[in-house]
Design a protein around this nucleic acid. Structure first.
Lengths: 342, 342
DNA sequence: TTGAAAGCGCTAACAC
DNA sequence: GTGTTAGCGCTTTCAA
């Protein structure tokens, strides 16, 4: 069964105009909701559009408007699978929700290796999108430079490593981590370790800084063996927690720099026969949903993700709109969420 | 600091031509690697391109070629987070790898609710992409219909529920599940349960069918209480396994219809004091990486994912190329992978 | 309020 | 080999 049916030709503005008995210009005005159209013409055009199942050709439109009404979320997953991170899923949901009532479309661009990153950069440079949101940046990531070459507006989720002038949105990771650690101090704990995030990411670094800051403020600076680096994943959290336990057997509290890591850490603690939170108090960071699924639920530092994704879009739209704008940064607060033990 | 710098105008073919001292047509030929260009002209053009940092305008090109050189992977995650599924990450990796040496770009389109699905359908219909790959389909999914309205080629990962004439690629889920179950039978197990996949997905249904087929062939039809439905996630696997254990305490083997679910199931089994595989033998399905990370490593039914993603792309390209082609389906085999216990 | 006409940047015949 | 020309389908002045 070889169906070599030529694809049916898509109707054009021209044909709609002909059917409606008006000019192309008028059809265009109707399509674009121009107020300067008579009701009669409007109805005729709408009817013709329905009849022909007309859909505007985006390429033709973009060629003249120089807009694509599309923004890209670029996933620079030079590391492992960012997909698995619930934080990522929430970002996507948040962005989609924010864009739901707009004309803007969202596309995700995955860039793992160097070649893919260049391909993505080319895609952006060729004008497929009006703006780019870049997340999950690592220190040696090439994407910011690759993307900066093109005139397409760019915003980062997370402060850039170098102090480069790029708009970004970040959570108060230092403050959040300090709050978490202070909470543990107030519980009366004294041997407080941390399962840190990856130290080639600002979020990882900042949370470690917050942890250290709080300890230092309490007059009990962190000992090196109290810090175990993880990679924000559940498995990484398990590994780091195991290392921490073996090096500091009398650990009585731990600040875990992400919630997936906290889940892994908790598993290890329990397998080791430690009671949580009686023997070892745990505070997670990031994703309230993950932490809430623990039993007993974890005390957590939550990020205002809605606020962050909203700010990301706002920042980007600002730039797209004005065709250049003041470089801006938004720091979003964090909140310590204590949950009653089940 | 308000930088209202107007964005620098992008250079056009025209300007390249002027600088290189040739016509637009010649520049176009060089850009598109036409053989009919003299070396001299080619060099001059390349030099001008470099000098001007010229990048072709995709919209203009697409308008005339009627190609965008972009295909979309549409994620119909009406359910929970498909992102978390390692299977999904592998699909993306596989597709990206397959497209690495081509001019084709890959974009991911996330469509959760009905509104987002319509937005995605509109995006496709407007001509942003040359073809669509649709994965993770549920029975009541509207996307196949929404996308079928547009003339854009579509291929499915997984057989469609209705027998509709859409090209698709599927693994031999029935055969794989049967092989898994037969393996357990050959181990001498007799009370073999299954943590099934979601029954509103063909993969879930087919794997359950394979399980039943194998049991029936052995003359020991499956009892209803031996089947617990999961949702392909780790947490779902845990829940289903717990249910299975409580209803069938003397269970001596279980076929788990996905590897993430197997990880969850394993956890429950061990927590319940069952030794694996001595007391309860487990076979997973899907993602060898996940299963290999277990200890001892799981016996697994593996899908030839490279083959599947390759076939998806091939099928799509075929359709794009000819502008209509025979509807085709590719069934990819599965393989039972036995791993030596650690 | 509407239409005519120009043109966005590019490719693709078609001549030369 | 190379240039000329004619559009691709749309938006947008500019007149009417």
């Amino acid at each position: 069964m070889t169906t070599t049916a030529a694809r049916p030709p898509t109707p054009t503005l021209e044909q709609v105009a002909a059917l409606a008995g008006v000019s192309r210009a008028t059809v265009s005005r109707v399509i674009n909701d121009s107020p300067r159209v008579s009701p009669a013409a409007r109805d005729a055009v709408h009817a013709a559009v329905e009849a022909l199942r007309y859909v505007p050709n985006r390429m033709a439109r973009s060629l003249v408007t120089r807009r694509t009404d599309t923004i890209a979320l670029v996933l620079s997953e030079s590391n492992t699978q960012i997909f698995a991170d619930p934080f990522f899923a929430r970002i996507v949901r948040g962005l989609s929700a924010r864009l739901a009532d707009t004309e803007l479309n969202l596309v995700l661009l995955a860039a793992r290796g160097g070649r893919e990153q260049e391909k993505v950069a080319r895609y952006v440079q060729q004008g497929h999108v009006d703006g780019v949101i870049l997340i999950s940046l690592h220190r040696d990531d090439l994407l910011p430079d690759l993307l900066a070459r093109s005139p397409v507006p760019l915003v980062l989720s997370g402060r850039p490593f170098d102090g480069r002038a790029v708009p970004y949105v970040d959570a108060d990771n230092v403050g959040g981590a300090a709050a978490a650690t202070t909470h543990l101090l107030q519980l009366g704990r004294s041997r407080i370790g941390t399962v840190a995030g990856p130290l080639d990411m600002v979020a990882g670094l900042d949370r470690l800084t917050g942890y250290r800051t709080a300890l230092a403020a309490a007059g009990t600076p962190a000992r090196p063996e109290l810090v175990a680096e993880g990679d924000f994943t559940e498995a990484g959290g398990s590994r780091a927690m195991a290392r921490l336990l073996s090096e500091v057997p009398d650990l009585d509290a731990v600040f875990v720099a992400s919630d997936p890591m906290a889940v892994g850490a908790l598993r290890v603690l329990r397998a080791a026969g430690r009671r949580v939170p009686d023997d070892v108090a745990v505070v997670g960071f990031d994703d309230a949903e993950v932490a809430a699924s623990c039993d007993p639920p974890l005390t957590t530092v939550a990020q205002p993700l809605e606020e962050m994704t909203g700010a990301l879009v706002d920042l980007l739209l600002e730039q797209i709109g004005s065709g250049g704008s003041a470089v801006e940064a938004r720091l979003c607060g964090t909140a310590l969420v204590r949950r009653a033990s089940a």
